[in-house]
Design a protein around this nucleic acid. Sequence first.
DNA 1: TGTGGCGCGTAAT
DNA 2: ATTACGCGCCACA
Length: 118
Amino acid sequence: MSALKARISDLPSPTGATPFADKVYTALRRIPVGRVITYAALARRINCRSPRAIGQALRTNPFAPEVPCHRVISSDLTPGGFQGKINGPVLAKKLRLLRSEGVTFTDGRLSDPARLIP
DNA sequence: TGTGGCGCGTAAT
DNA sequence: ATTACGCGCCACA
């Protein structure tokens, strides 16, 4: 047998996710209840130039709702997706979660843009 | 409003 | 090492 020694860098991350996803989750935990942020804005916070990568990471978020991935919406103020879905009952769940936190949507768009975090 | 390309991380080949 | 794909975004017509 040989080379069975594991290195820290071999491990995904302390949380079991990739290092990148870990950054996303950490940043997300700072989003307070009743407020939302866009994928783009969240990306900027971790110096990422691709909002898409954020969604990709959140898609398989294993810590919902501990990590409030439901507080992340699209740049055009539409809900965006949830667990890989952009509509249907799954997305409805996201909307319900937000509603329980005081965040509502009017005609498919965020009712109060003031709740958006820059 | 609709369409296309783009940037970046991940998983699969 | 390459290829393909994804809770998106911006530019342009």
